[in-house]
Amino acid sequence: MNLIINGEKRDVESDTTLLVLLAQLGASEPYAVAVNQSFVPREQCEGIALADGDQIEILSPIQGG
């Protein structure tokens, strides 16, 4: 299935959960995740089944004003 991860298309195996995806991507701490513009608490990532077309955002700290 196709996902959009941080704005870029990526093809991943069907039935990939969010937790597995994060591991595959090598997401490094600290970060937080949203799927389709909704925040997903870290402890819930394991149970989130992704679907074709889902948009995933993985965000990390940056400078801010």
Partner: peptide
């Protein structure tokens, strides 16, 4: 001090900045 979040993998987002803060 104010901070923000941006997509991981962009130039400045990440652990180095956070460690400085």
């Amino acid at each position: 001090v104010t901070v923000s979040l941006r997509r991981q993998g962009t130039l400045e987002a990440g652990n180095d900045f956070w460690q400085l803060i």
